[in-house]
Nucleic acid binder design. Structure first.
Length: 575
DNA sequence: GTAGGGTTAG
């Protein structure tokens, strides 16, 4: 007998569904549910709209954010504090801080006063823009409003100091946490772990993991993903594999980020076929692929000069309804211009704009660079001017790209003119800017002009460095001014601008050289992996461990690949 | 376990 359940979904039920859709990046489905609500006799509320607004903003779909906001108002709903905070967060992530501050004004006018969340997002926004003074000013302001900074405020600032390499100040803030009676949390530990990994001090990072456990936090997916990535980047495949294993044993599921880390590592090792196979089998194994997964492989193909494969993958991604971010558009634009297809790259830019996304500095700089590499400096300049009219703000990178393009095409005078007007506008330059011009002047034997720029560079404390040195030294030698060349060298060495480093030959031995039996073990493991018999592969690996035999790097990669693919069966066994 | 902040991948 079949009973028809007389249960009607409520707004809350559907909100949960919508939230789930957004988590899976299926915003179209989420919007369909909003339309279906009325049929179920319920209406969307603030939670409904806020959920989708946040997802849209996170995907950079600004046009759709505006549309949905007006729909919301048509429904008679008034934005609440969370709505405003979503807007603040969205604008901050785009780096549109003026707009973010405007939303704060708006919320104050509408009596939804900013809270600790609002301030934390603003502080993060200003931190990302590199304006720490403003971030600290906001922290003061929040204190005066009796909004006490919390562990998130501290984590934001600590992380930023680490990212800027100002670790002393970061550690000072960690001490300050304690003084204010705020307990560091798992994120605080993860931030420190990331810092040590970045410094190449993986042993210290592991010490923090132990501290973390002593403080009552168990390492989470972020912790392990950080360690896996750091070990992959350092070439410690054995340790990376071990971390993946530990992660699984602790009942933590590898996720998209773990997968993407391995995909990236495979691409770096030029194992593109294996990366592609992993990408294809991953969704069957219960992973969500995202645009990062595709973008990683697309970049891998472009780097390997397989532009057609890259383009095919781009189409495949679109077919799967996975929407590329500006970052991935930039990767496509970069790849196309590297393959001599800068005009096609411009088509990509138009597609980006049509889909309601916002290009960034990298987008424009990549195209300008593309024209320059094709030797079409005039086109690069035209494009630059056209984009400036459309409110593109050229940065130091734009300047350096154009200068190097002009110099390479022998248009040194035009380059110098551009440089002078750039400085007159009060825009920043760096050592790359000076080195570009100095080496071009040197090549044209205009040594006195080069020296002029050299002293200008020194006045601004931008150098000289080893590139400046090489350019000037070569020019002096080639002009037969040997005495000056020698004098120049000694001054550079004495002032510590350059050092005569002796490159140590790499004497480290491969596992095969240490133990010939490692070859046959590696081969056996590889064979099992290629046939999908990961269990057998792991068993042999266990044998090598017990016998103290080292296997080679590429075999570890195969094992890691296998662990990723086995995820579903592991989690089933645990569940 | 219905919405918003800080940490991991390119």
């Amino acid at each position: 007998m079949i009973y028809k359940l007389e249960v009607k979904p409520t707004t809350n039920t559907i909100n949960v569904l919508i939230y789930g859709c957004c988590l899976e990046n299926k915003i179209t489905d989420a919007l369909k549910w909003v339309d279906k609500m009325e049929g179920f006799g319920c209406l969307p509320d603030n939670v409904t709209y806020n959920t989708i607004l946040d997802a849209l903003f996170k995907k950079g779909k600004l046009n759709e954010v505006r549309d949905l906001l007006s729909d919301m108002k048509k429904q008679g709903l008034v934005p609440n504090r969370t709505t405003y905070n979503i807007l603040v967060s969205g604008y901050c992530k785009l780096g549109w801080l003026k707009e973010a501050m405007r939303v704060v004004d708006l919320m104050t006018q509408n009596k939804s006063l900013p809270d600790v969340w609002t301030y934390n997002m603003l502080i993060n926004g200003w931190c990302n823009a590199g304006m720490l003074e403003e971030a600290f000013r906001l922290r003061k302001e929040m204190e005066s409003l009796k909004l006490l900074p919390d562990v998130v405020t501290y984590n934001t600032l600590i992380n930023r100091f680490f990212e800027l390499g100002r670790s002393m100040e970061a550690f000072k803030l960690i001490d300050e946490l304690d003084e204010h009676g705020i307990k560091p949390n798992a994120v605080t530990h993860n931030i420190m772990i990331k810092w040590y990994c970045k410094e190449g001090k993986i042993d210290k990072a592991c010490k923090i993991v132990r501290n973390m456990e002593e403080n009552g936090f168990s390492p989470d997916c972020v912790t392990y993903n950080t360690l896996i990535d750091a070990n992959c980047k350092a070439g410690n495949m054995e340790e990376a594999f071990r971390m993946m294993d530990v992660m699984g044993r602790k009942g933590l599921k590898m996720n998209t980020i773990t997968l993407n880390t391995i995909l990236h590592t495979l691409c770096c090792e030029k194992k593109l076929d294996e990366a592609y196979m992993l990408l294809n089998s991953a969704s069957k194994r219960g992973y969500y692929l995202d645009e990062v997964s595709y973008g990683t492989l697309i970049t891998g193909y472009f780097r390997d000069e397989k532009a057609n494969r890259a383009l095919k993958l781009w189409d495949e991604m679109k077919e799967r309804q996975i929407m590329p971010s500006t970052f991935t558009y930039n990767a496509m634009i970069w790849g196309l211009s590297q393959s001599g297809k800068t005009e096609q790259a411009i088509d990509m830019l138009n597609e980006l704009l049509q889909s309601g996304m916002i290009p960034d500095e990298t987008t424009f700089n990549t195209i300008i660079h593309g024209f320059c590499s094709e030797g079409q400096v005039e086109k690069a300049l035209q494009f630059h001017n056209k984009m400036v009219e459309k409110s593109f703000k050229p940065d130091i990178v734009t300047c350096n790209i154009l200068l190097s393009g002009l110099c390479r095409e022998g248009m040194l005078e035009k380059a110098l003119k551009f440089f002078r007007s750039w400085i007159l506008k009060g825009k920043a330059v760096n050592s790359v800017t000076y080195n570009t011009l100095i080496s071009s002047l040197c090549k044209e034997r205009r040594l006195e002009d080069a020296f002029g720029l050299l002293s200008e560079m020194e006045e601004k404390k931008l150098g000289p460095d080893r590139y400046t040195y090489a350019a000037i030294h070569t020019a002096l030698v080639e002009s037969g001014r040997l005495e000056e060349a020698q004098k120049f060298t000694s001054i550079m060495v004495e002032t510590g601008k350059i050092n005569h480093q002796v490159v140590q030959p790499n004497t480290s031995k491969t596992p095969e050289e240490i133990d010939p039996s490692s070859i046959s073990y590696s081969e056996k493991i590889n064979e099992h992996c290629s046939q999908g018999r990961y269990k057998d592969a792991l068993q042999i690996f266990e044998e090598t461990r017990q016998k103290g035999i080292t296997i080679n790097k590429s075999t570890y990669m195969n094992l890691m690949n296998g662990l990723i693919k086995r995820r579903k069966s592991i989690s089933k066994a645990v569940d």
